[in-house]
Nucleic acid binder design. Structure first.
Lengths: 216, 216
DNA sequence: GGGCGGCTCCATCAATGGATGGAGAGAGAT
DNA sequence: ATCTCTCTCCATCCATTGATGGAGCCGCCC
């Protein structure tokens, strides 16, 4: 191993970024970009078609998120190797991407050399998580998981609902809503609902985009 | 005009993105990239050195933000033309960038053709704001400005402070804090502090990054 | 089956937050 | 100058939120 060409699939919705990556990688000895995709669904068809050694993938994608893509493709091809390449979007996505089987996590803004070195390393079977991210993960480990119900309540809080509204929405009593809140405040390590909301956004537990839209 | 080469400066901190832009533009007839910068300070020195016709600039930059760079350079060179190129970071930055004198606003993810067409258009003296962004600006127009004091209070709210803590921090009475809150709730079009916090983050009035750090 | 732990649920009480009305100080306009 | 507008400030009253203690339920281990 290590002598044959590394076949790479690039999944990235931002046009210029994708073009930059492809241009950059195609001039590198021993690496060949065999396919490109601009959204999650396309990523899956391209993967099936080309069976790349390495898939370079953004997490924020139209149609189907990067985490779901990784999960799905690893079902079909357990040996598939993924390198997540993204701007920082909160700890939650990082965690889920690694859970789903990503081997490496790179921030946009890395140098070309880092990228190439990481591709070679992952192809050789290694993993690579940058120190800054490793530290966040370590922090996260200390935190407890929210129960499904607590998550429901947190989501409503982030969307600006009052306890009464949440009670109606979830069809439980207001007193119960308060219990869940009290519990999730403890788990998030905060003292009131406003801190809970900002923490949830910051960590990526509740995506910021969901704020614009009313719920369907 | 329109026959001479358009001299472009590219300011972008993400390495692969910058590289992609430069590679893309340098093969276009009539456009030449005369300089690159990876942060705001470097952007200013590069600008002074090369006096580009067009400056392509990201808003989120290390050391000095894109808005400040535009403001400063337009003081020195009122004819300088800026095209802002960024992922969506909230309405506030868009608004301020246009105020500072940016002529066009492009989202990363545009096609190469759009980018090139926009560069030519701006060089010819036109402006270009995509419909999606124009709509947001229109929405924003209806909203009132926050007073400095209201902004101070909002910032504290986003950072999870209680009214009592805010009062101490700003050295005013708790009752006064409540007045400011009441006023800013109205201006933001929300009904409680949690909604105010998420709205502030979403619109980019208070940057999300400020949440990690304690204040110096 | 009995016991145990986690999740969900509820009621009561103290603390916090939001609505309302109103006063003084400064900037700009007539 | 004085009028008016805006910003800043404050106090009182009612609504919402958060703390606390405790009950039923389900799945799991022994």
């Amino acid at each position: 191993m290590g002598q044959e060409t590394i076949r790479v699939l690039v999944v990235e919705d931002h046009h210029v970024v994708r073009q930059g990556l492809v241009a950059l990688l195609n001039v590198v000895e021993g690496i060949e970009v065999v396919g490109e995709a601009a959204d999650g669904v396309e990523a899956i068809t391209q993967f099936r078609k080309h069976q790349p050694n390495i898939t370079l993938i953004d997490l924020r994608l139209p149609r189907m998120g990067g985490v779901d893509v990784i999960q799905r493709l690893r079902m079909e091809s357990p040996n598939a190797r993924f390198i997540v390449l993204t701007t920082y979007d909160g700890d939650e996505d990082i965690y889920r991407a690694l859970q789903a089987g990503a081997r490496a996590y790179l921030l946009k803004g890395m140098t070309s050399d880092e990228l190439i070195a990481t591709i070679r390393a992952v192809h050789a079977g290694k993993s690579h998580i940058p120190p800054a991210i490793a530290q966040r993960l370590a922090e996260r480990m200390g935190t407890e998981e929210l129960t499904p119900r607590e998550f429901d309540v947190l989501e409503q809080i982030v969307h600006g609902k009052s306890n009464k509204e949440i009670a109606t929405e979830l069809d439980i009593s207001e007193a119960t809503v308060k219990t869940h809140i009290n519990s999730l405040l403890g788990k998030l390590g905060v003292t009131d609902r406003t801190q809970a909301a900002t923490a949830a956004i910051q960590r990526g537990i509740v995506p910021l985009e969901s704020l614009r839209k009313p719920k369907p």
